[in-house]
């Protein structure tokens, strides 16, 4: 028996919005410790790694490990049926071929039950090596989304260069070029408005804008985003999901031909 309850169904809606651009289907691996998902996009350029800890749920029970393959378009259809203020409960029996979603309004005046067929998906979990990143940048997630959107107008790819002075985003193409520099913030009232750079060595890497823009669909989940970079390895873009967990995106760099 598996059962996971979230008082705020909006969190699950946002998680789904954050992954469905990159993935059409994915397996949710449920265990005693929580729900995990790891999947690459079709082109094997980016990877989504979602971790929702069991203790972050309002109720969580998982007697036996369970892998639930879901079509994310269909899951989105069902989650759209939940009101923003509804509580959501996901349930599945052991070895089930369906997952149930129950939405309850405040005061339980309205209770909706949906069942979705599960799929058997080929799972290939990649081994992601432990990496000490040369640069870690923490910045407001809305600022990052804005920069990715703005620079996408100039070219298909953008360079991210980090030194201890700051982080520079740049792009160039037919219409011209763009450069955005962000300095580390000296004093900020709100922690989520800060730009913080931890640098061991300067790094400059180039990435496809299209994927970065897809990652920014996670912006509503967190006020801050963390970018981790080292020379010649994939970028990690991480959004915390409150006390529940995190979503991490890995993106392979563009390399010299």
């Amino acid at each position: 028996m598996f059962e996971a309850r979230l008082v705020q169904s909006a969190i699950l809606k946002k998680v789904l919005e954050a992954i469905k651009d990159l993935l059409t289907e994915a397996t949710f691996d449920c265990s005693d410790s929580g729900i995990q998902l790891q999947a690459m996009d079709n082109a094997h350029v980016s990877l989504v790694s979602l971790n929702l800890r069991s203790d972050g749920f309002d109720k969580y029970r998982c007697d036996r490990n369970l892998s639930m393959g879901m079509n994310l378009g269909n899951m989105t259809k069902i989650m759209k049926c939940a009101g923003a203020e509804d509580t959501v409960t996901m349930k599945a029996q052991d070895n089930a071929d369906v997952v149930a979603f129950m939405f309850e309004s405040k005061n339980q005046e309205k209770v909706s039950d949906y069942e979705m067929k599960l799929m058997n998906l080929d799972q290939e979990h990649l081994g992601i090596p432990e990496t000490d990143y040369s640069c870690i940048v923490k910045m407001p997630s809305q600022e990052f989304a804005r920069i990715c959107r703005d620079l996408s107008q100039f070219g298909e790819s953008m360079a991210i260069s980090c030194t201890k002075e700051g982080v520079k985003f740049s792009s160039a193409g037919d219409i011209g070029s763009a450069n955005i520099k962000l300095a580390q913030t000296a004093n900020v009232d709100a922690e989520e408005e800060a730009v913080v750079i931890e640098m061991q060595e300067p790094v400059s890497l180039t990435f496809a804008c299209r994927y970065l823009n897809s990652f920014t669909k996670a912006t509503p989940l967190s006020a801050q985003v963390q970018l981790s970079m080292s020379a010649d390895v994939p970028l990690v873009v991480e959004y915390k999901i409150g006390e529940l967990g995190h979503i991490r995106y890995y993106l392979a760099p563009k390399i010299e031909d």
Partner: peptide, 14 residues
Amino acid sequence: NRKQASLLNFFKKP
């Protein structure tokens, strides 16, 4: 010119 690398160049297959 740069080409897009694959994640499979960096991460181990199971």
